[in-house]
Lab assay of single mutants.
Amino acid sequence: KWTIEEKELFEQGLAKFGRRWTKISKLIGSRTVLQVKSYARQY
């Protein structure tokens, strides 16, 4: 389950980097690239 903080970081990353999942993953820190991709599908 994603925390509110992780969701906010995901949204910031999406706005800043677009669909560059590796960069978003590094920004969040606690999620892998695969987790970020998977979350993006449901987002």
Score class of each variant (00 low, 15 high):
R31H: 02
V36E: 01
K26D: 09
S38D: 09
R20W: 01
W21A: 02
T22F: 07
S25Y: 03
T22G: 12
R41Y: 10
V36K: 00
R19D: 13
Y43H: 13
W21F: 01
L9V: 04
K16T: 10
G18W: 15
R31W: 06
E6N: 00
L27T: 05
Q12K: 11
K23C: 11
K37E: 14
W2F: 07
T32H: 01
G29K: 11
R41L: 13
G13S: 04
R19C: 11
W21Q: 08
K7I: 04
Q42A: 11
S38T: 14
W2L: 04
W2T: 06
R19A: 14
V36L: 09
T3Y: 07
E11Y: 04
G29E: 05
L14R: 06
G29Q: 13
K23G: 02
T3H: 01
F17P: 03
K16M: 12
T32N: 12
A15C: 05
E8W: 00
F10A: 07
R41G: 10
K7N: 02
R31F: 03
T32Q: 00
I28K: 00
Q42N: 14
E11S: 10
T32K: 06
Y43D: 08
E8C: 06
K1N: 14
L9T: 07
K26P: 02
I4R: 05
I28G: 00
Y39N: 01
K37M: 13
G29F: 12
Y39Q: 04
K26Y: 02
I24D: 12
A15K: 10
G29R: 08
A40C: 06
Y39V: 05
I24W: 05
Q12A: 12
V33F: 15
F10I: 03
G18F: 14
K7S: 07
F17K: 02
L9Q: 07
K37T: 03
E11C: 07
L9F: 03
L9K: 14
R31P: 00
Q12E: 14
V36Q: 02
E5S: 12
E11F: 09
G13N: 00
K26E: 14
W2C: 02
W21C: 06
K23I: 11
V36T: 05
K16V: 05
K37G: 04
T22K: 14
V36Y: 00
Q42C: 10
Y43E: 12
R20S: 14
T22S: 14
I28N: 00
E6D: 06
A40K: 01
Q35C: 01
L9R: 10
K1C: 08
F17L: 00
L9E: 01
V33M: 13
S30M: 03
S25C: 13
S30L: 06
L14V: 12
A40E: 02
Y43V: 13
K1A: 11
G18S: 02
S30E: 06
E6A: 15
G18Q: 08
W21H: 01
V36D: 00
Y39C: 03
L34F: 11
K1D: 15
R41W: 07
I4C: 13
A15P: 00
F10E: 05
E6M: 15
A15H: 10
S30N: 03
W2S: 07
A40W: 11
K1Q: 13
E8I: 09
A15M: 12
Q42I: 10
T3L: 14
E11Q: 08
F10Y: 04
I4W: 05
T32S: 12
G29S: 07
K7L: 01
T32R: 02
G29A: 09
Q12F: 03
R19L: 12
K7Q: 12
Q35T: 02
I4S: 09
F10P: 10
W21P: 04
G29M: 06
A15F: 09
R31D: 03
R20H: 13
L9M: 05
R31Y: 04
K23H: 05
R20F: 12
K23W: 05
Q12D: 02
L34H: 14
T22M: 10
R31G: 01
I28D: 00
Y39P: 03
Y39W: 15
S38R: 10
V36F: 06
S38C: 10
K16E: 08
G29L: 12
G29T: 07
F10R: 03
I24L: 09
T32L: 09
E8A: 12
T22V: 09
E5A: 11
Q12W: 03
W21E: 04
S25I: 15
S25E: 05
K16Y: 04
G18K: 13
T32A: 04
S25T: 08
I4Q: 05
R41M: 15
R19G: 09
L9G: 05
L9H: 07
R19N: 11
